[in-house]
């Protein structure tokens, strides 16, 4: 029974400038159900970040709408959490790890013990319960991003949005973090919208991969990833089906880059 969580309809974003207006997003329509892990992938410069900012209510779309649980998003909704790519700038260096995770909870949960419990739980979930008293800048990049994830987890959002969160960490850390995201999805049933430019990552993580065209952006294809739910860096990536899906998405991206794909008259749902 699909439980509709997020609906993006006819989203369009045009930036005005002196040299004329730039259409960053042409027409994006897709939906996401509760409990899903959807990856959005597209060629570089296709407006992924713009799309996310519109979805999260940080940016006003030129036209079209974003609805979360049937309610239109006009400002950042309280049941949504974001993980940014720039962990170094999204964590506050003057707060400890605990302070960072606790901060968004302050007005949501007035009880200190309740907050403490949520913080402990989130830090344990990302494997950082030993570092609660450290400052973010004392940690490695991968650990900083774990703190940002813990902050989002503790916030208990209905949907977690991640904007290329692992683009700035090294490959091994990245694999660990990908498994962390899978685990949060599987064990806690979190709905996650994950934006990336990495095709492998999108197929490995997602249950669906939404392939974006180049700018002005529209949804070129919505790929269903029929890999087993139990995924593993070694065995899953070695599956023939994984390779096939990856190749498929890769070809779609290449077509998108060359601008070969033809925009369909009606959006695919």
């Amino acid at each position: 029974m699909p439980d509709n969580l997020l609906t993006v309809t006819g989203l369009r974003k045009v930036y005005d400038s002196s040299t004329g207006s730039v259409e960053a997003i042409g027409d994006i329509t897709f939906r996401m159900d509760a409990g899903e892990l959807v990856c959005i992938v597209g060629p570089s410069g296709c407006g992924k970040t713009t799309l996310l900012k519109c979805i999260s209510g940080l940016l006003k779309p030129t036209s079209g709408s974003v609805e979360l649980r049937g309610r239109p998003v006009t400002s950042p909704p309280p049941n949504m959490a974001l993980v940014f790519q720039e962990y170094g700038r999204s964590l506050y260096p003057w707060l400890t790890v605990r302070g960072n995770v606790e901060l968004p909870l302050k007005h949501k949960y007035p009880s200190r013990s309740e907050r403490g419990r949520l913080v402990e739980d989130a830090l344990r979930a990302v494997g950082l319960d030993h570092a609660a008293a450290s400052y973010p800048w004392q940690l490695s990049g991968g650990m900083q991003q774990r703190v940002a994830i813990a902050r989002a987890v503790a916030y208990q959002p209905e949907v977690l949005i991640m904007d290329e969160p692992f683009a700035a960490v090294d490959a091994q850390t990245r694999a660990d973090l990908e498994d962390l995201v899978r685990a949060l999805h599987r064990e806690r049933g979190m709905s996650i919208l994950f934006v990336t430019h990495d095709i492998d990552e999108s197929v490995y993580l997602g249950e669906r991969v939404v392939v974006l065209s180049k700018s002005p952006t529209w949804v070129q294809e919505d790929v269903h990833v029929d890999l087993p739910d139990d995924r593993d860096q070694i065995t899953t990536r070695a599956l023939p089906r994984f390779t096939a899906l990856r190749t498929h998405v890769y070809e779609q991206i290449q077509r998108a880059k060359r601008g070969e794909a033809v925009r369909p008259p009606a959006p695919v749902a």
Binding site: Y15, D16, S17, S18, T19, V22
Partner: peptide, 8 residues
């Protein structure tokens, strides 16, 4: 920082 806005 989001877009070129020289005229603005």
């Amino acid at each position: 920082s989001s877009s070129p806005r020289r005229g603005r």
